[in-house]
């Protein structure tokens, strides 16, 4: 269950980012999990929620989205989507392809809300 160690890095990095935003509180985090990241999105979500609960960023909404596996063909230059983990170009058939995205866990964006607005929201 290495999702826990990935979640730990995520939570630490998000907390670091929120430190640069005084007067703001974190409302949500969006993460993209590549198809070849070797990470199970559901487990990552559970781990993030659990770790965040005990941290400075409790009550954050975690959006864990998947990211398709894209590659660039070294022979014909086409950008291709790798389906079924078959690493071959569907234009020219070459097996010399370089993965360009979908092999990592990407911290895509965080959403901050002014603390006053956050307090008003809670009162409503």
């Amino acid at each position: 269950m290495h999702e826990m160690s990935i979640a730990r890095s995520l939570v630490v990095q998000v907390i670091d980012l929120t430190r640069d935003q005084p007067g703001q509180s974190l409302s949500s985090v969006r993460v993209r999990v590549g198809e070849l990241a070797g990470v199970e999105p559901q487990l990552l979500l559970a781990a993030c929620e659990m770790l965040a609960e005990e941290s400075a960023i409790a009550n954050t909404r975690w959006e864990i989205l998947s990211q398709p596996l894209l590659a660039s063909c070294e022979l014909c230059g086409e950008t291709i989507e790798i389906r079924g983990f078959c690493f071959a170009c569907n234009h020219c058939g070459s097996t010399s392809v370089r993965v360009t995205s979908g092999d990592a866990v990407i911290l895509e964006q965080i959403t901050m809300v002014a603390m006053q607005a956050a307090a008003e929201d809670r009162e409503r």
Partner: peptide, 14 residues
């Protein structure tokens, strides 16, 4: 939400 700000990070966690 007018008070909301989205910060694009786009960073590989590892």
């Amino acid at each position: 939400h007018p008070a909301e700000r989205v910060i694009i990070v786009q960073r590989d966690v590892q």
